[in-house]
């Protein structure tokens, strides 16, 4: 039975906190919208809708970051980058080093606060490959090594 194994490394443990914060923010926005709708429409069963929403939002905030942390993994070898992402479904991506065009390191305000960073690797295909929420030191080291490896390859990677 030939199957792929998981990539070697997990993302930073702090990623769970980062995902929880964004989940809380999203559900708060959703709550505000729902409140507005319920108030304007004077729905008779408003408490039922509210209860359903709170239940759904709470389970999302609790489970999503844990499932993501369990799934998200990455690995880089001299010849390829291998990632695994998802929380309900699962996507594994493999890109040969010879096809890498650019390597980028991203960090938003929240990431900087927590000392996290994400790396994205682009090829001539449509979608980039993302390695989300590594410790900043790990991410910058990875960026440097990927850039060096990609530069040593010749050809236009199409």
């Amino acid at each position: 039975m030939t199957t792929l194994r998981d990539p070697a490394h997990q993302v930073s443990p702090k990623a769970r906190l980062r995902w929880t914060i964004s989940a809380v923010l999203v559900t708060l926005v959703g709550a505000a919208v729902l409140t507005g709708v319920l108030v304007v429409s004077e729905a008779p069963l408003w408490w039922l809708w509210a209860l359903l929403y709170v239940g759904g939002a709470a389970s999302y905030v609790v489970t999503m970051p844990r499932l993501r942390y369990a799934t998200h993994r990455w690995e880089s070898t001299p010849t390829a980058v291998y990632t695994q992402t998802g929380w309900i479904g699962r996507t594994r991506e493999i890109v040969p080093m010879s096809r890498v065009q650019t390597v980028e390191l991203h960090q938003d305000a929240l990431d900087r606060l927590l000392g996290l960073a994400s790396v994205s690797v682009s090829t001539a295909a449509e979608d980039d490959l993302h390695i989300a929420l590594l410790d900043h030191a790990v991410a910058s080291e990875l960026t440097a090594s990927l850039t060096a490896a990609a530069e040593s390859e010749t050809g236009d990677a199409t």
Partner: peptide, 26 residues
């Protein structure tokens, strides 16, 4: 012309033991 692979598996595909293999290209 294949410049990468994606192995995608939705929740339901996972239960059926199936995947969608995507070859990416320029």
């Amino acid at each position: 012309g294949i410049i990468g692979w994606r192995v995608e598996q939705s929740f339901f595909q996972r239960r059926a033991g199936l995947v969608t293999l995507v070859a990416t290209t320029a």
